[in-house]
């Protein structure tokens, strides 16, 4: 079955899962953490009958300090760079035990969760291997907060151009991060996996439905999830959702899916908010000047248009809720 034909249960305002959270309160995420919000909503959409694998990072440390754990699913953390490989092992084990009639006789999604560093930098090899091998019930979630926040806000290959971090500081001869974000969704899609999507907790129904679709589709799925970080971005904690909406409405973080290689733009932004509105809320961009805004605006529009063009190339009729 084609990925875009695979039926799945969408999350709507009416069908929003109101049961207890899969991720319990009492975790140690910072006040106003957009990453733990994304994680909470994704897990809510997937439900507790999954197995989770975390990479080392904020979400791992803040949810599982011995002797406590916030996870109500089976959960394992092994190391930083290998969430995809651990999940591949779990997925293979669950699959073979099912076939050998020594495990539950149904699909159990195995969900690897890592930050941007654990995905795009140190974990990209393990991720590439797992995507390429085609594990059937494998979902990889990159919670992208655009720097190594757990170790103290160092730049990663997902840090956006112009952002001040502790290893891409702005200064007399620096505007902060000097490179553009590594295009992880495109890299994931290039593996020929059936499902890749970007998502953002500020668009919670879209985010949660994408998690459901990822679980329904047979074959590896990759979700790239916008995750605001009040500490690392110098953002007021109460703006976790506001900033997420702006990221989409400025075209900085377009919401799209790639189903069997076909792009679908989920949210058209015809009259975008200027990128400066997004930057002004965050201390990490405080040093940027008007001319920098212009440069970034042009590039943001160009990247957005690319997605629009890709979506026009092979149009897909998306499967409605089953």
């Amino acid at each position: 079955m084609r990925a875009y034909e695979t039926p799945f249960e969408k999350v709507t305002a009416k069908t929003f899962p109101k049961g207890p959270d899969v991720l319990a309160s009492g975790h140690r995420a910072c006040q106003g953490c957009g990453e733990v919000l994304a994680l909470r909503l994704l897990l809510k959409a997937l439900g507790p009958e999954i197995i989770c694998v975390s990479a080392t990072g904020c979400m791992e440390v803040c949810t599982a300090p011995f002797p406590q754990s916030a996870w109500r699913t089976p959960w394992i953390h092994v190391a930083f760079e290998n969430a995809a490989a651990v999940a591949a092992g779990v997925e293979s084990a669950v699959g073979i035990l099912r076939r050998k009639k020594r495990g539950p006789d149904r699909r159990i999604p195995v969900v690897a969760i890592a930050g941007d560093g654990g995905t795009a930098d140190i974990g990209i090899q393990a991720l590439s291997g797992a995507l390429e091998r085609g594990h059937e019930d494998f979902i990889y979630i990159c919670l992208d907060n655009e720097a190594y926040m757990n170790t103290g806000i160092q730049r990663s290959s997902e840090t956006p151009f112009g952002a001040n971090t502790t290893t891409s500081p702005s200064g007399k001869r620096s505007k902060g991060q000097s490179t553009w974000k590594k295009d992880m969704p495109a890299i994931a899609a290039a593996h020929g996996v059936p499902y890749v999507a970007t998502a953002n907790p500020a668009f919670h129904l879209d985010l949660m439905s994408k998690a459901r679709r990822a679980a329904a589709i047979e074959g590896p799925a990759y979700l790239h999830v916008y995750s605001s970080c009040p500490t690392g971005w110098r953002l007021k904690p109460e703006l976790a959702v506001t900033i997420g909406k702006l990221a989409v409405n400025t075209r900085i973080f377009p919401l799209y899916e790639v189903l069997d290689g076909r792009y679908v733009l989920n949210r058209k932004v015809d009259s975008p908010v200027p990128v400066s509105e997004y930057f002004k809320l965050q201390g990490r961009f405080r040093h940027l000047k008007e001319e920098d805004y212009g440069y970034i605006q042009a590039r943001v529009n160009e990247e957005y248009e690319k997605i629009v063009k890709l979506a026009e190339t092979f149009p897909v009729e998306l499967q409605a809720a089953s």
């Binding site: 197995i51 694998v53 394992i76 092994v78 190391a79 290998n82 490989a85 651990v86 999940a87 591949a88 092992g89 779990v90 997925e91 293979s92 084990a93 669950v94 035990l97 020594r102 495990g103 393990a126």
Partner: peptide
Amino acid sequence: SSCIGSAAAG
């Protein structure tokens, strides 16, 4: 890594 995951899954 896969072996650890696999053994952990039984």
